[in-house]
Amino acid sequence: MAVYLLQRLGQALLVLLVMSLLVFAGVYAIGDPMAIMIPPDASQADAARLAASLGLDQPLWRQYLVFLQQAAGGKLGVSFAFQVPAVTLILERLPATLELAIAATLLALLLGIPLGLLAGLRPKSFPGRAIMAGSILGFSLPTFWVGLLLIMLFSVQLGWLPASGRGATLELLGVPVSFLTLDGLQHLLMPALNLALFKLALVTRLVRAGTREALSLDYVRFARAKGLTEARVIGVHVLRNILIPVVTVVGLEFGSLVAFAVVTETIFAWPGMGKLLIDSINVLDRPVIVAYLCVTVLLFVTINLAVDLACAALDPRVRLGGAEQ
């Protein structure tokens, strides 16, 4: 177990190293952040001074070494645009993104499980077919397009929900969250729904497939034959069969939800870290881009590890470390 964990940690570090090197070199290749950072009327002397103070006058390999040295101490550089440590910037926005992603996951589960069950139990019925058709639509609709239509309908035409931004926040265990205030909930609903749509389709289809499979399993047939009520058969036997794969997939997909928040946050002006990434790309804020990716890698490694461990705990057939296919 300890060996396995160390191995995973080693892999994660290697990923971080490779990725930071690629991004470092890549952003360097696009262009000189100085050109956009210095005020238009600054003299060449000012520019040189600024470059020196940011370490941008050094050759690339030395800049990278300095970065690694600082990263080892948990410092991922100071944002060019904000003149604040990049990690601080990201951690400031992490709660907003996590809140959005968690809300979207909950929406996907709360709507997806009943819909999937219904479609799985009555595959030939009209609702069953409609749900399946809807799920294909959910897979197909581009997130940004749906976001647009949601704003059009609920904010502009009906005027029910605020069009953009995050609502009032309250501190919960030191973290600012918005779902505890009415204003916050109003702001959260549309972006969360927008982000949830794809996962909702995914969960619906997973649950439907699992339900159909479960219904054909012997013990479920047996339970039905024994005369157990339909509710009990579904509630206990079928649901148990489908929950493990659903939880696994939803867990693994949480990372992609955080990444796709880039689009939703852009449309709804949600002050999360996805929007920060887009803005940072626009101004070549290299420390923030690199730090964003580092934080995301860590997040994914943690999630994947947690899911692996959970699967091992749930299913004795899974052996950790022996992942040859």
Binding site: L148, V156, G159, A163, S164, G165, I267, F268, A269, D279
Partner: peptide, 18 residues
């Protein structure tokens, strides 16, 4: 001062009274 760089989002915020 609310920061809304996205043009349609900013105009929507005005139209919806945000």
């Amino acid at each position: 001062f609310r920061i809304i760089p996205n043009d349609p989002a900013r105009i929507a915020a005005l139209l919806s009274g945000d």
